[in-house]
Amino acid sequence: MDDYVDEEDLCPVEEVRLTVANTDDPSLPIWTFRMWFLGLLSCALLSFLDQFFNYRTEPLIITQITVQVATLPIGRFMASVLPQTKFRIPGFGSRTFSFNPGPFNMKEHVLISIFANAGSAFGSGSPYAVGIVTIIKAFYRRKISFLASWLLITTTQVLGYGWAGLLRKYVVEPAHMWWPGTLVQVSLFRYLPHPLFIIGF
C-alpha cells in the first residue's frame, strides 16, 4: 500500500482530512459475488419498499444507511460460509474467479451502499418521475405505457449521473469540494468494522 499523498489531493477542510483517508489498498477485491448479490438485492429491496410506502399519507423512507449497517454482518457471514474454490469462466481467458475471494472489506461495503442509495432514489425515497406517472394515471385518468413510464423514470434518474459526469472536473475531483452529508457515512464506514462497535460497547 502506497502511503504517499500528493499535496494537491489534501483537502483544505479540516473535517474532511480527519474523516476521509487519503490512502488506498488496491489489493482488496471489489467486484465480488458478495458485492453484486447484496448490492442488487439491496437496490431492488429499497426501491420496492420506498415506492410501496410512498403512497401513504405519511411516507416511510428507508435510506441506504439502514443497508449500510445491515449488510456488514451479512457480508461477514457470506465470507465465512461461501466456498473459496477458484474457477474459470469461458471467454475470460486465464482469469480465475471465486465466490469468496477473502474477508468482507470496506470497498465491497461501500459499493453495496451505493447500490442501495440508487435504489432509494439517492436517499429521498421514491423517484420524482413516479409522481408524474401516478398523476397521469390517477388524476388525469389517461393511459401511459410501461415502456414510456420506464423511460421517463430512468432518464430522470440517470440525468443526475450525467450531470455529475459532465461536471466531474468541477464538483467531484477538486480537493476543496466537499459534501458534508457524506462525512457521516464515511465515518460510519471507517468505524463499523471495529469489533467493539459490533458488540455494542
Rank of each mutant, 00 (worst) to 15 (best):
residue 1 M to K: 11
residue 1 M to E: 12
residue 5 V to Q: 06
residue 12 P to M: 05
residue 14 E to P: 03
residue 15 E to V: 13
residue 19 T to C: 04
residue 20 V to L: 05
residue 22 N to Q: 12
residue 31 W to A: 15
residue 33 F to Y: 08
residue 41 L to N: 03
residue 46 L to N: 05
residue 48 F to G: 09
residue 53 F to A: 00
residue 56 R to A: 13
residue 59 P to W: 06
residue 62 I to Y: 03
residue 74 I to M: 10
residue 75 G to L: 11
residue 76 R to P: 05
residue 78 M to E: 01
residue 79 A to T: 12
residue 82 L to E: 03
residue 82 L to V: 02
residue 84 Q to Y: 00
residue 85 T to G: 06
residue 86 K to R: 13
residue 87 F to R: 04
residue 89 I to Q: 06
residue 94 S to R: 07
residue 99 F to G: 05
residue 100 N to M: 05
residue 103 P to V: 11
residue 110 V to M: 09
residue 110 V to N: 02
residue 113 S to L: 10
residue 115 F to P: 01
residue 119 G to Y: 15
residue 120 S to Y: 04
residue 124 S to Y: 11
residue 125 G to Q: 10
residue 125 G to K: 11
residue 134 T to S: 12
residue 134 T to R: 15
residue 138 A to L: 11
residue 140 Y to P: 00
residue 143 K to T: 02
residue 144 I to N: 01
residue 144 I to R: 05
residue 144 I to S: 03
residue 145 S to C: 01
residue 151 L to R: 06
residue 155 T to L: 10
residue 155 T to N: 10
residue 158 V to W: 08
residue 166 L to V: 08
residue 167 L to K: 09
residue 171 V to N: 03
residue 174 P to E: 02
residue 178 W to V: 14
residue 182 T to M: 13
residue 189 F to L: 08
residue 189 F to G: 08
residue 190 R to K: 15
residue 191 Y to E: 08
residue 191 Y to R: 13
residue 192 L to G: 08
residue 194 H to R: 15
residue 198 I to P: 01
residue 201 F to E: 09
